Simulated scan of single mutants.
Amino acid sequence: MSSYQYIIIGGGISGLYAAYLLEQRGISDYLLIEANNVLGGRLKSMPINEDEAFDLGATWFWPNEQTQLSNVIHDFGLTTFDQYQIGEMLIDRSLLIPPQRWKQHSPESKRVKGGMKALIDKVVSKLDQTHILLSHQVVELVQEDEHTKVHVKCPNHEIKVFSSQQILVAIPPRLAVSTIQFTPELPVVFKEKWLNTATWMAPHAKYIAVYDHPFWRDQKLSGSAHSSVGPLAEIHDASSAEGSAALFGFIGLPAHARKTIKDVELTQHCRNQLVRLFGSQAATPKSEFIKDWAKDSLIATEDDQSPAMGHPYPPMKSPDKSIWQNKIIGISSEFSPSYSGYLAGAIEAATLGIQTLFSKTQ
């Protein structure tokens, strides 16, 4: 049985950034375990060529508000660009009347050149990748004396067991308590709070259409639209920094309704809506993508099939009266006190988790 000082569960941006912070402190005695065969978690970009990719997960950040994330992106040498917002937006209230044009007033947001995948790739490039284990899912944590035994399901379904002094939980709290058995059990109230913390992005689905030219801009439109008709409830210009044109939208149909519709049919409905809003040129995209996060069992649980009313309120990172106290520390975005559920929250939660880790050892 291999032993590590630290084990990180989850290879999204919070887990990867926590690993980076450990290595910055000169610590190499850790293992990062990711259930998926790729890293990134809820940061997922669809590449269309060597330099361009469109985000199917987290897309924007707000540099004037999210200064820590902005500094991280800058320090990693990534190129950013403004979200396109020039022109009017459309308000779509009925199939019986044309959409109305409104002046757009939105806070300045930015995107990362090459998609958020560029951020993941940059963090990974800074790590010793021999400490990353893909396609392995943590299924049980067993507390024994001063160590935790971490039971991990391998791709061949066999179980490996690792040992660690400290567990950093970099997957959403609801997912953690829904998919991992804790022995002994977590305190009931603490477990319920983790279970009741909505996983941001999990109920949602995104659609992207890629074009040769941003024809909506010729109409003095920003590409943004809000619709009560659907199927896309919110639409934005998703064009890349290099010039590839695209529109993307959040699909307004709830997860249970999306399960009854094949992706090819849903894609057609989304395309028809873009034609109705932006004209006939929207009928012939070069490519289209749908990512339904509610169908991703490594992100969403049954409790995540209905959208949350807002960004989740951060639960406690660790039980305060339990054998598990400070043995597990939650560091996913949901634990961020300032930006729970946002990309900036993942950076903040990872940073605070590492600070907690070392403050209790001093």
Rank of each mutant, 00 (worst) to 15 (best):
A346F: 00
R258I: 08
Q83Y: 05
N272K: 15
T80W: 04
F76E: 06
A344K: 00
L175H: 14
G345T: 10
K317T: 14
K149V: 01
A255P: 09
I328E: 02
I251T: 02
S106W: 12
I86G: 05
A346K: 00
Q66N: 01
H256N: 12
I91Y: 11
H151M: 02
D296P: 04
Q143L: 15
I132W: 00
Y20H: 15
P314E: 13
S359W: 02
S135T: 14
I33N: 07
L95S: 10
E334H: 13
I329V: 13
E140C: 09
K295S: 11
V169C: 12
I73W: 00
L134F: 10
K193W: 04
A209S: 15
R271Y: 06
I120R: 03
F289T: 07
G40T: 00
F250G: 11
I9C: 07
P184Q: 09
S178H: 06
P99Q: 11
P214K: 02
Q83F: 03
G279W: 01
N37L: 10
A205R: 05
M116I: 04
D29N: 14
T130E: 13
A18E: 01
P315N: 11
P172F: 12
D237R: 01
V229E: 06
F335R: 03
D82E: 13
A300L: 02
C154R: 15
H131M: 03
G11T: 10
Q137K: 15
Y84A: 11
S28R: 06
T183M: 09
A241N: 07
V142N: 14
T260H: 04
Q100C: 00
F278W: 08
F76R: 11
K160M: 09
A176W: 04
S224R: 08
V177T: 09
P312C: 04
F335I: 08
Y211G: 12
K193F: 05
P315Y: 11
A282G: 01
P214E: 08
K126P: 01
E242D: 13
G57Y: 00
F250A: 13
K160C: 08
A282I: 03
Q66C: 02
Q104P: 00
M46S: 13
